[in-house]
Amino acid sequence: MPEMTAISLTVNGQARTLTATPDMPLLWALRQELGLAGPKFGCGAGLCGACTVQIDGQPARACQMPVGAVGTARITTIEGLQRDPLFERLRAAWLEIDVMQCGYCQAGQLLSAHALLKATPQPDAAQIDGAMEGNICRCATYPRIRAAIAKVAKEAGHGR
């Protein structure tokens, strides 16, 4: 049986320590030990993307990563992107187009979109769908998710 131990993490640029069993998924450490509500619990199996965070800048499913295996990797949640210029452009587009309905999946959607545009500033339609395929929106806001990502990409293109 796993035993509780002190674990150090770097979350949103800050050093955090918690006591947990190493097998605890990062999601539950973030939500219930460190008090971050942004990453959401949807399926616990890496199939819905509601718990998406970034680990060293790459989108990752926090429900699939044991907290004991994170080590020194940098974890970013939606709470940690508040002054990120690309995130702010995404958030503005999300609001302008009124993407969300219930909103439960949207932090995960934004983190996936953010990682996509960081790596591929001018994605085509297939690249947008490919990057967002792992994020379920049960309300099916997909048409507006596509439109919001395309809008941010287009504005960035014009800004060059």
Partner: peptide
């Protein structure tokens, strides 16, 4: 007229609004 949801801005900052939060 088209109006953005009154809670959208908060949700998109990850604020704890849901039951599970």
């Amino acid at each position: 007229t088209p109006q953005v949801g009154v809670d959208s801005a908060k949700v998109l900052r990850g604020e704890p609004l849901f039951g599970i939060d």
